[in-house]
Design a protein around this nucleic acid. Structure first.
Length: 335
DNA sequence: AAAAAAAACAACCGCAACCCG
DNA sequence: ACGGGTTGCGGTTGTTTTTTT
């Protein structure tokens, strides 16, 4: 089981990626789809090892990635999932399809871990789990945060149903739903449809645009290119852009934001993790139960679940609960 | 305004799992 | 079943950016 010496080869470039390299890589992937990373450096002429190419694609160039601005919901999910799964960042990331494992890992290491440590000290040895669903340092009784979470879920579902309604869906950026999930789910699929990568040409154009503004010979070119890069992809998929990058405050509110909806949805998913825990298992629709039953399966292939199934589950549920909506709190029991 | 410290981010490294002949 | 090649994952480090002094 020898490790390939690809990264040890001489002439293999290391360090930050340049916009040119990004363009080459994106162009190649647009044409051939992701996968067969071994062949990428050879076929593109990039002086990078296959790993580096894969990483660059997975963490930055892949469409549908949301960067910065972790929402409170996401934050809670990460904390909770970390408590449940440990440092299995890929598994955690599978619950947050728009986030990369690297991003989550960084966020955890640089921010959440410290914050939780503080909280732990503040509560004098209180377990981390106590604070999972509480952004403040006050622990909430489980029933309470459970109810709050379920309220969030309901809100998320409602928002999603609105977002999926014909009127709204037209206003959504083209890449938003299916392509996003296709992309994530099909990273390993060899015969990825070209539709999935149709965005890449646009990405390259945007990337180039940003690059022209910030020529690479400037010392700051790297970060500039990255920012423009990030923005271009974020804009592309209609995700809240990194206009306030790095600040872990809530994202833009107001308009129906599918990504946000899904955050909440996945927050639900998060709660459903308890389904594997006999102690606490919220009642679910049959689809959802099946869907979330196997945590391992879920963690590896969440995004492979057809979007329509999610839609169906959500919308069916919404039909039941929305008819007599007066307050989201009233619907807690419906879940 | 400059220097130092802290935080955030991007990428690398090595191991393990997976795939396939 | 075995072994080599490839990919994925998590830990870690280096660099850049932001904040504080």
């Amino acid at each position: 089981m020898g490790r390939p010496p690809c990264c040890d080869k001489e002439g293999v470039k290391k360090g930050p990626w340049t916009p040119e390299e990004d363009i080459i890589l994106v162009s190649y992937i647009q044409e051939h789809g992701p996968g067969n990373w071994r062949a990428v450096p050879t076929n593109t002429g990039l002086s990078r090892c296959s790993k580096s190419c894969r990483l660059r694609w997975a963490n930055y160039l892949r469409p549908g990635i949301k960067r910065g601005n972790f929402t409170e919901q996401e934050e809670k999910m990460i904390i909770h999932l970390q408590a449940l799964l440990g440092n299995r960042w890929a598994a955690i990331a599978s619950y947050l399809p728009q986030r990369t494992d690297n991003d989550i890992k960084n966020y955890w290491n640089t921010y959440l871990k410290k914050r939780l440590k503080k909280l732990e000290i503040g509560t004098e040895g209180g377990s981390l789990g106590n604070n999972v669903y509480n952004s403040s340092s006050k622990p909430i009784p489980r029933g309470q945060w459970e109810r709050r979470l379920q309220t969030d879920i309901h809100m998320a579902k409602k928002a999603l149903s609105e977002a999926l309604s014909p009127n709204n869906i037209l206003s959504l950026p083209e890449e938003n739903d299916s392509n996003l999930y296709n992309d994530i789910g099909s990273i390993k699929q060899t015969n990825t449809s070209s539709v999935c990568y149709a965005s890449s040409a646009d990405n390259i154009a945007r990337l180039l645009k940003g690059w022209m503004k910030n020529p690479p010979n400037k010392a700051s070119s790297k970060s500039n290119s990255i920012v423009s890069n990030q923005n271009s992809f974020n804009n592309l998929v209609g995700i809240e852009s990194g206009s306030s990058e790095g600040t872990p405050s809530g994202g833009a509110k107001g308009s129906v934001d599918l990504s946000e909806t899904f955050e909440s949805l996945f927050g639900y998913n998060d709660s459903l993790d308890y389904s594997s825990n006999s102690e606490f298992s919220p009642s679910l629709s049959p689809e959802a139960s099946t869907f979330f039953q196997d945590e391992t399966k879920l963690s590896t292939s969440f995004s492979e679940i057809p979007f329509s199934l999610l839609e169906k589950w959500l919308l069916d549920d919404i039909k039941i609960s929305c008819s007599d909506v007066t307050s989201s709190e009233d619907h807690v029991t419906l879940f």
